[in-house]
């Protein structure tokens, strides 16, 4: 008497034992939490056979939402915590989870990580990454994003710390974008390091000597959207400012398009003809596809998702976490003080 259902979309047939990775997800942070965070976790529990999700936060609220969603509870562990972000970081610190995903505030995240996690050997300051869509595709998977770091974890890093950011960014881009030789640049007005503050100039000089980093030199901020570099290194204050400016510029383009659509029929027709291509471009460069950006420098993997993250972004952030965990970032760091010149 009843029409048969289809199996839940994307339901995984993988063995339920999942000897995979455990990711602690802060279920309470972000503009769309906990609804979208829990939905993302629920969907991922059905489609991924190798990720166990530790949902941290208000257990009742999480359970109530899960009960309304198709999910696989065999892959979900709910952990009550008054402070979900700190609780998630604590799970990573204790070794119960291998990575953290959160859409929480940067300051709170950095503070919790500094309190609970150890920095990688040779690293003295963490770097928060951000991904920005560019005109260029990179790596075997055609990744359109470039990685900018730091964007707020370390406001005024020293030259040596900027060098570490470049190394960390290179290792991360290799692991996530499948880009074997990411091109690294340091941010400087006009693309001239000598006009930048001394630590930038010094970092640029040192980076030219570092093995394993394909250093292009200094890069003007306007070159970022063109995709001139795969990893862009800067101090946290500058990075956060540049990111805000780039986001503002993107918003301005959208506003102008709306204005054009209202003003003249011909413009409207032109925009309509372009809409398919724009839609395709939007899909390719949608940050939701990327999921989250890393807080690099700690011994444990920490990913920060955009505060406006929906279910898809949370899912993808967890997938990125699983992918990065398979690569050992610390193994690729050069020892501090070691000779760095690459042999010819």
């Amino acid at each position: 008497m009843v029409e048969p259902h289809r199996r839940a979309a994307g339901a995984s047939q993988a063995a339920p034992g999942f000897p995979g990775v455990s990711v602690a997800v802060d279920a309470m942070s972000g503009e769309r939490a906990p609804d979208d965070v829990v939905r993302g976790a629920a969907e991922l529990s059905l489609s991924s056979g190798s990720i166990e999700l530790l949902l941290v936060g208000d257990a009742r609220a999480i359970t109530e939402r899960l009960s309304r969603l198709p999910h696989n509870p065999e892959r979900i562990d709910v952990r009550p915590a008054a402070d979900a972000l700190d609780g998630a970081v604590a799970l990573v610190a204790s070794g119960e989870a291998a990575a953290v995903v959160t859409a929480g505030e940067v300051d709170a995240l950095v503070r919790s990580c500094r309190e609970r996690l150890r920095l990688l050997p040779g690293v003295t300051a963490p770097a928060l990454g951000a991904v920005y869509p560019t005109a260029l595709r990179r790596g075997t998977k055609g990744d359109p994003f470039c990685l900018i770091l730091d964007v707020g974890a370390t406001l005024a890093p020293a030259a040596e710390e900027l060098v570490r950011f470049a190394e960390l960014g290179t290792l991360y881009a290799r692991a996530v974008s499948h880009n074997p030789r990411p091109r690294v640049a340091i941010l400087a007005p006009g693309g001239r390091a000598e006009r930048a503050p001394p630590e930038i100039a010094e970092a640029a000089a040192r980076l030219a000597e570092v093995a394993g980093v394909d250093f292009l030199g200094a890069l003007d901020p306007t070159e970022i959207p063109k995709g001139e570099a795969d990893v862009v290194v800067c101090g946290g204050f500058v990075g956060a400012s540049v990111l805000s400016l780039l986001d503002g510029a993107s918003g301005l383009v959208v506003d102008l398009a709306r204005y054009g659509q209202k003003q003249r029929l011909l413009w409207r027709l032109g925009l309509a003809m372009l809409s398919g291509g724009v839609g395709q471009l939007k899909r390719v460069t949608d940050w939701k596809q990327y999921g989250g950006a890393p807080l690099l420098g700690f011994e444990k993997l920490v990913l920060r998702a955009h505060p406006g993250s929906g279910a898809l972004a949370i899912q993808n952030a967890c997938r990125v976490a699983a992918k990065v965990l398979s690569a050992d970032l610390s193994a690729g760091l050069s020892a501090p003080g070691a000779p760095k010149r690459e042999s010819a």
């Binding site: 063995a15 339920p16 034992g17 999942f18 000897p19 455990s22 166990e52 257990a59 359970t63 009960s67 509870p73 065999e74 892959r75 979900i76 562990d77 709910v78």
Partner: peptide
């Protein structure tokens, strides 16, 4: 479930937790 169906400690304990939470 462990010996014949590939279940593990995590999936069983998560199942336990789920039935308690509900």
């Amino acid at each position: 479930m462990v010996s014949s169906y590939g279940y593990g400690l995590h999936s069983l304990s998560n199942s336990f937790q789920d039935i308690l939470r509900r």
